[in-house]
Design a protein around this nucleic acid. Structure first.
Lengths: 248, 248
DNA sequence: TCGAAGGTTGACGCTGCGTCAGGGTCAAGC
DNA sequence: GCTTGACCCTGACGCAGCGTCAACCTTCGA
């Protein structure tokens, strides 16, 4: 006759595990001795080992009882199911590993390499890190919702960078955000340039259902200076950030 | 300004998930409007997407906050840790798959192939399934505790099967357990044969710390007939099942 | 004005035990 | 007979990451 501790030791589990199996009905409660101790027999050792064998193989406890009672056919079928589940879990973790590998390479929010490349170009042009962070946030939102489309927008964005006036705009804005207290002439220069570019060409509109309001809000959240610029633009008849429209 | 539902939709998560992140402090609670609704900004969308990116990559929620605040070095180190954890989980599940593959082939309690082979030989000799089940249970106990040693005992066991008297003993016992009410002459024959074999040669003793008492108990749990046999053996001066000793 | 759709807090459920609290029991040495 | 240490008992919370009620309030469109 065995105590619960010796039983557990034979099967290589903890006492708590044995009691848990009693609780869920996986292992029947044995007789008690006069002092209330559980007393086990050799058959319990075998039963417990069988349970552990299946549990170690990844079978959920809730299915083990059925498996032990199943015939060869049911057993084989259940084994199939469990193997498929394990395979799925492995696959999920493998994609996770690829994901975090990409995260380690890029930044914290896995963007497609094309976007990463576009951001790199901006940085090389001397655009401020603050502006870059805002750009990246915008792309993060877009990439989350349209992961396949964003990469198709990139060539046009890169082509736009050929225009030295746009580059100059970016640099002026960089100066504005990095300078503690930019004078009004800088802001005026930005607005002039922006208005000129807008007047010249309608921006290519990549789609109607895109969350421009959200991206605009993102820009506005950058701080009071952004709002000031927006106000100045509105005075010249333009509204919005990511899709400017003529107003008034 | 976004409601919780729209925020959740942007990030591709459920409302419950967003609230959970608030609860654990992963995402800061936003302002409320007059009616108590949470109002989110675009920055929250970005923050939530970043969180989900890491969570989808298998990062535990408790580590995500630290990761988002970490510098490149800390980030890389954390990524290393998480990747190692994922690799471990994958490895565990792969061994699980191998395990259940073996279970599907053999029986419910993965025994080493040598033992499976030994049991197959017994079955081919015509030994009863009931006896076989008992034998298998015994081997299960042994294999659980001495997985490496059991395979070394098998050759001797197989060699013993060359003795036609031992085979005959097995068959007589099979008859005894399968027959509803075996007559005493059958039991006497078993005891005679067993005593003769014992008298002739000491069984090879595979080790001192083996749980003979447990195996004996296992045999006894087979039912009253086993106890009867043991009693008859004791009358002839032998005790125990798996390691018989002379008594008196 | 009404109903559907969306929001609020609070709480339990799931897996497989680990761990703590607050005891009783057994065997051995003094 | 007493202490000590190793066991055993029940009961209950905790863990990760939400899903899923329940019971109620708000907003919006017809």
């Amino acid at each position: 006759m065995l105590t619960i501790g010796r039983l557990a030791a034979y099967a290589g589990v903890t006492i708590r595990t044995v009691r848990h199996y009693h609780q869920v009905g996986l292992l029947p409660e044995p007789e008690r001795d006069a002092s209330g101790y559980r007393r086990y027999g050799a058959g319990d050792v075998v039963a417990l080992i069988k349970i552990r064998t299946l549990a170690d193989a990844g079978v959920p406890l809730s299915e083990i009882d059925g498996l032990l009672r199943a015939g060869p056919a049911g057993f084989a079928e259940a084994v199939q199911r469990i193997d498929a589940r394990l395979a799925g879990e492995i696959a999920r973790r493998q994609t996770s590993r690829e994901q975090i590998a990409r995260l380690a390479a890029g930044d914290v929010a896995s963007l497609p390499p094309e976007v990463i490349d576009y951001l790199r170009r901006l940085r090389e042009l001397g655009v401020s890190e603050r502006i870059l962070a805002g750009e990246r946030d915008g792309w993060i939102i877009m990439a989350a919702r349209w992961p396949d489309e964003v990469v198709t927008w990139i060539p046009a964005k890169i082509a736009q960078l050929q225009d030295p006036r746009l580059v100059r705009l970016y640099l002026l804005m960089s100066e504005a955000v990095d300078d503690g207290a930019p004078d009004d002439s800088l802001l005026t220069g930005i607005v002039d340039l922006l208005a000129a570019l807008l007047a010249e060409a309608e921006w290519t509109d990549p789609g109607e259902d895109l969350p421009f309001d959200l991206l605009d809000a993102l820009a506005d959240e950058a701080g009071p200076r952004a709002e000031r610029l927006r106000q100045m633009m509105r005075e010249r008849g333009w509204d919005g950030w990511t899709r400017q429209r003529r107003v008034s």
